[in-house]
C-alpha cells in the first residue's frame, strides 16, 4: 500500500501568540505538527503495519518544516518530502497548496492519502478535498474510523457529533477528525532511526510548476487576536427587578431581543 500523508507545520495554539503589524510573530512562537495531521500520520502508520507498504509524509513550506517531518519519521513514517516554496512564493493559500501537492502526487500512484481535517491555524479544511478533486479521486472528510479490506474501505465519519458510515474504494483521500486514534509520541529508537530515513527536498522547478500558476487567489486583509473577554456583570436587587433589568439590557445593550 502506497500511503501519503499531508502534513502542516503550525503554531502551537497552547502557547501565547503575538500579533504585530498584521502578522503573527514567529520569534519565540512554538511550532508543532498540526494536531489533526498527527491523527493522519498515526492512522497511516497503523494501516502500513497491518497491510504492508510505505508511508511518505509531505509538507509545503520552508526549511524550518524539516523538524516536523523528522518528528513524523520518528513516529514511524518511512520517507519525508519537503516541497520548499520559501524562495518562490511569498504567500500560499488553499488553492496554491492544493495545486502544488496535487502536482507532486499525480504520478505517485497513491493508494491512500491522509490529511488532517483542518489546520488549527488557517482552519479552512479545504486543502485535502481540493487535492482529491485535482487528482480525480474520491475523498471523505472528518473520519473517525478506517477499515481497509482489499480495495474496499469502510469509514465512519463525524457529522456534527453524529456518525455516518460509508463505504468507498481505493484510491482515496481522507481527512482525520479527533477520535480517529491516539497518536503515538516518537520513541527514542524511533528518533534514532529517523536520522537515517530519507528526507527529500523539492522546489517548484522540480515539479515543473511555474510560480505564476500557483499565485495565491486570496489575500489576507487583516489578522487580529480575539477580543479580550471582559468580566461579566452580576445583577442585584429583587428577583423581579433583576429580570426586568436583564430583559432591558438584552434589548438595549446586547441587542438580541
Amino acid at each position: 500500500m502506497n500511503i501519503f500523508v499531508l502534513v502542516k507545520r503550525t503554531f502551537d495554539t497552547e502557547e501565547k501568540i503575538v500579533v504585530t503589524g498584521g502578522a503573527i510573530q514567529e520569534d519565540g512562537a512554538e511550532f508543532i505538527i498540526n494536531p489533526y495531521d498527527e491523527y493522519a500520520i498515526e492512522e497511516a502508520i497503523q494501516v502500513r503495519d497491518a497491510q504492508g507498504g510505505e508511508v511518505t509524509v509531505v509538507t509545503l513550506g520552508g526549511e524550518d518544516a524539516e523538524k516536523q517531518l523528522r518528528t513524523a519519521l520518528a513516529m514511524g513514517a518511512d520517507k519525508a518530502v519537503l516541497i520548499n516554496t520559501e524562495d518562490d512564493l511569498d504567500e500560499l493559500d488553499q488553492f496554491s497548496a492544493a495545486y502544488i501537492l496535487a502536482e507532486y502526487l499525480k504520478d505517485k500512484e497513491a493508494d491512500l492519502i491522509l490529511g488532517g481535517n483542518v489546520a488549527i491555524d488557517g482552519g479552512s479544511g479545504q486543502v485535502g478535498p481540493r487535492v482529491a478533486e485535482l487528482l480525480g479521486i474520491n475523498y471523505v472528510t472528518t473520519i473517525t474510523k478506517l477499515e481497509i479490506d482489499g480495495k474496499t474501505v469502510k469509514i465512519v465519519r463525524d457529522v456534527e457529533g453524529d456518525s455516518e458510515v460509508l463505504e468507498a474504494e481505493l484510491p482515496l483521500l481522507v481527512t482525520a477528525q479527533q477520535g480517529l486514534n491516539e497518536p503515538r509520541y516518537p520513541s527514542l529508537p524511533g528518533i534514532m532511526k529517523a536520522k537515517k530515513k530519507p528526507l527529500e527536498e523539492l522546489e517548484l522547478d522540480d515539479l515543473d510548476i511555474d510560480e505564476d500558476d500557483v499565485k495565491a487567489k486570496t489575500t489576507t486583509v487583516e489578522i487580529y487576536l480575539p477580543a479580550q473577554k471582559v468580566a461579566g456583570r452580576v445583577l442585584e436587587g429583587d428577583l423581579s427587578d433583576q429580570v426586568k433589568e436583564l430583559v432591558s439590557l438584552l434589548h438595549s445593550e446586547a441587542k438580541v431581543v
Binding site: 523538524k67 523528522r70 518528528t71 520518528a74 509520541y185 516518537p186 520513541s187 527514542l188 528518533i191 536520522k195
Partner: peptide, 14 residues
Amino acid sequence: VAFLEELRQSVRAV
C-alpha cells in the same frame, strides 16, 4: 543542539 532539542520535545511529550 538540534538533536537534544528533539530529545527534549519527545521526553516532554511522554
